[in-house]
């Protein structure tokens, strides 16, 4: 459903992407991997329309989405959970979920089943939630727009292990409903078993694509592209 070919992008005069290829199929979960600064977030920003692609093609559901404004891309069905647990701090949990909700499938009841804690805190300001709860809210908010493709940037970064566990369980549940997902995370142990394919970025290029088992088995590959 998503086909990204040879995209290049730059922040002013400093080029960040030199040719990234990513493809996500219907119901698939694809992991976007790489060390810090290799272009993972830039790739996501580009395909959400937050940065222009200087070259390459962006196709989603068979249509070209390159150059469309961000809100149009979102309307086509790409839902983003941005890095850093971004909610709307001065709206309540309920308002955060409802403000941008559309479509059918994921509604408040479904999100409440996924994250019971959010329902308990429905009338609380988002800024008063813990980090983990804010990440749950960010995911819930994206799901409420009923995206065809859900993009998670740094899904569990900076969260306590017990919260991570909950988030991974939720991601697994979302995937089990047939949701296509593109995910960035550093936690290979949890990420790889859930993923259907992996793409590794190195200095703004996609350098490896394969299945997660091969990556999990190849210590050398991990060391070369993902090790610190």
């Amino acid at each position: 459903m998503l086909e990204v070919r040879g995209i290049e992008a730059a922040y002013g005069s400093s080029q960040a992407l030199f040719g990234v290829n990513v493809a996500v199929g219907e119901g698939q979960m694809v992991a976007l991997l790489g060390r810090n600064g290799m272009g993972k977030t830039t790739t996501i920003r580009t395909l959400c329309g937050l940065m222009p692609a200087r070259a390459g093609t962006l196709r989603f559901l068979g249509e070209d989405i390159g150059g469309l404004p961000a809100y149009r891309i979102a309307r086509r069905g790409i839902g983003l959970v941005p890095e850093g647990r971004r909610c709307f701090p001065n709206l309540t949990v309920r308002e955060n979920l409802l403000a941008t909700a559309r479509g059918e499938g994921w509604d408040r009841a479904a999100v409440a089943r996924l994250f019971p804690r959010l329902e308990e805190r429905a009338e609380q300001m988002a800024r008063t939630l813990s980090g983990g709860e804010q990440q749950m809210l960010a995911i819930g908010r994206a799901l409420m727009t009923n995206p065809r493709l859900l993009i998670l940037d740094e899904a569990t970064e900076g969260l306590a292990p017990v919260i991570r566990h909950e988030i991974w369980a939720a991601i697994a549940a979302v995937k089990a409903r047939g949701q296509a997902i593109l995910i960035v995370d550093k936690n290979l142990k949890d990420l790889l078993p859930l993923s259907d394919a992996c793409v590794i970025l190195e200095k703004g290029r996609s350098v490896w694509r394969g299945n997660p088992d091969d990556l999990a088995a190849d210590a050398d590959l991990q060391d070369r592209y993902l090790g610190l």
Binding site: G49, A70, Y71, A74, L80, N90, L91, T100, R141
Partner: peptide
């Protein structure tokens, strides 16, 4: 609060 966040949720 954040226009970009609103736009990526599908609202101009």
């Amino acid at each position: 609060m954040n226009e970009v966040r609103l736009a990526t949720s599908g609202i101009a």
